[in-house]
Amino acid sequence: MRLKYVMSEVMVGLWRNVTMTVAMIITMAVSLFMLGASGLIYTQVKDMKAYYYDKIEVAIFLKPEITDEQRSALEGALKSDPMVREVIYESKDEAFTKFQSMFADVPAVVDAVKPGQLPESFRVGLVNPEQYQQVREAYVGKDGVDQIIDQRNLLEKIFNILGSVQTGALVAASVMAIAALLLVGNTIQVAAYSKRREVAVMKLVGASNWFIQAPFVLEAVVAGLIGAILGFGLLAVGKIVLLDGSLQDLTDLLTPLSWGKVLIMLPLMALAGTVVSSVTAWVTLRFYLRV
């Protein structure tokens, strides 16, 4: 009986102030969509780092005048280094062959370079790619070492872009969340005002506080849940239209985004939506319905 009473109060409350309810749900949906998107970018960047960092290597280019002793000393040092996972030696010839195949469709470039012009190098895979700086410092001054280049720098740029997209989404999510909070607070105040007579009588005859507050809090929770579902819908549409659609080429570069990962965002968004809206509603009521 009491549950039925509370639920019917919730529905009546949401419907009575339907324009406000819609505004609340829309802001909530957009905010949670941004939150979900930034969550997805975060996991995506993490995946990509794990995927690409395993494959990239540090290239230690050697000076043309390097002696055999220097080369074998360097190789020995690299092979016994605990930070190093593997070492591959690339001779001038190998470098040239690789170069030829890389630029096979641009013969002018290939013709301009003669065998022996490209430097020999050690291709070094690291146990932990984050330790690049330490590896660099250990070898940069060694005899025969010319330049040390980390392929990570290139990837880092991509990750920085993705990172700023994620930060942007988070900022937008927070701004929208503030708007959603204010709307929830306002909606609850309007609801409490329109039911002020009932609330006064309930307080007078000794209805418990939770019984007085539950319909209002649930109103906000229902709105938060609907917002989360709509926000998730936006996320799904975004995946279909953007990632699987017009940005298909980019998607091949990025690690694939599975539906499983997108689906995980639904409970997260629903949780964020309900917690935020119910806490706001409850706090509003603490001020508005003083016992």
Binding site: M1, R2, R197, E198, A200, V201, M202, V205, S208, F211
Partner: peptide, 23 residues
């Protein structure tokens, strides 16, 4: 302090129902 949209019966019953008494 009666609720205008409820009958005499409903006004009194409301006071009972909100403190957990059954219909």
């Amino acid at each position: 302090r009666l609720l205008p949209n409820r009958t005499a019966y409903e006004n009194v019953a409301f006071a009972l129902e909100v403190i957990g008494k059954t219909k």
